[in-house]
């Protein structure tokens, strides 16, 4: 039960958590009833999923003895900056195409 063991356990837990989140995002993409609800699955769970994976990878490469390795953070930064942009563009495209919405949806959309 030494330091390296606990680091390894932490990395394993992080990558398992990350991939489970990515899977939940894809389940949401598959089972939710309309496009706007499906949009929530991937743009959220995948961002945190990749985030957890990246932190696991960062921990793993930083504790191998070859010095600190932080460049995996760039992927997370990039995804966090771009995920809202692509989600917004996809939502606008869907509004433009007047996709049908789930009947329970409250509130109105704007005419495009």
């Amino acid at each position: 039960m030494n330091f390296a063991f606990w680091i390894e356990a932490l990395v394993a837990a992080l990558i398992l958590a990350g991939s489970v989140f990515a899977l939940i995002g894809s389940i949401g993409l598959w089972k939710l009833p309309d496009f706007f609800m499906r949009l929530h699955g991937p743009t959220k769970a995948t961002t945190l999923g990749v985030g957890a994976l990246v932190i696991g990878s960062l921990l793993y490469f930083s504790t191998r003895g070859a010095g600190l390795s932080l460049h995996e953070l760039l992927i997370t930064i990039f995804l966090f900056l771009t995920a809202p942009v692509s989600a917004n563009l996809l939502a606008k495209a869907a509004l433009h195409q007047e996709l049908k919405r789930s009947k329970k949806t409250k509130g109105k959309v704007w005419p495009q």
Binding site: F36, L39, H40, T43, K44, A83, P84, A87, V109
Partner: peptide, 17 residues
């Protein structure tokens, strides 16, 4: 603000007037 709303789960900014 629009990006923060899109990033926090459960809400997506669909359009800006």
């Amino acid at each position: 603000l629009a990006s923060i709303i899109s990033l926090t789960p459960g809400t997506v900014t669909a359009d800006v007037s």
